[in-house]
Amino acid sequence: MEITHLEAIAAHRKKRRPVALLTWLESGRSALLTKTDLASSSLAAPLSPALVDALESAFRRDRSMVVTSEAGEVFIHVFNPPLRMVIVGAVHIAQALAPMARRAGYEVIVIDPREAFATEARMPGVELLTRWPDEAMAEIAIDPRTAVVVLTHDPKIDDPALVAALEAAPFYIGALGSRRTHAKRCERLRAQGISESDLARIHAPIGLDIGAEGAVEIAHSVMAEVIATLRGRHAPALPQPE
């Protein structure tokens, strides 16, 4: 592996561009290409149609794999943009969830317009945005590698955050609140023109049904639900409101 490839992968990662490193296992030769390179015909080294198919599948499924080509085995190492968690509300659960998400490889962004909550001392090591969520979220690309976790319990902050999340395509949207709270929230969002199918995209009450008590345990149930959703597993969620 070449250091220049590592530098290039880091640069693509920063710009949230999917990239793959191909290594021909017999010769040790390697080549780096972006998902965009694959779509265009401007490839430096022409690849066989089978290899192009394998690359497309590897990007889509976020799965690195070995494939066999005419030139022997090739390892496709996929580097999709880093996972990201946007947490709305610098609350107690967020203090437990943020370091957990970081350890799991997520970039963490915490949004809370209340400056008393959104302090570096309370939320070390994360990007803090002390702005209203609709403004802040317009600036962040909420993409399919992003999870949005809404935790303030305050409709003034939570509702615009949920509307912004539903307008984008994150892989996960979750909102804290009891079934009753969520039923009321759904009423307000319907009044703003949010469709039933969009409301159904919100995981609420948030988290898996593990009997969590207190902020740290709830953070675990949220993290687990985010992971299950990313992996396409249907783990036992807390019952949805009728």
Partner: peptide, 12 residues
């Protein structure tokens, strides 16, 4: 906002 340092960052 970065996640924990990646292996590649250590390598560099």
């Amino acid at each position: 906002a970065a996640a924990d340092k990646t292996i590649h960052e250590h390598a560099l």
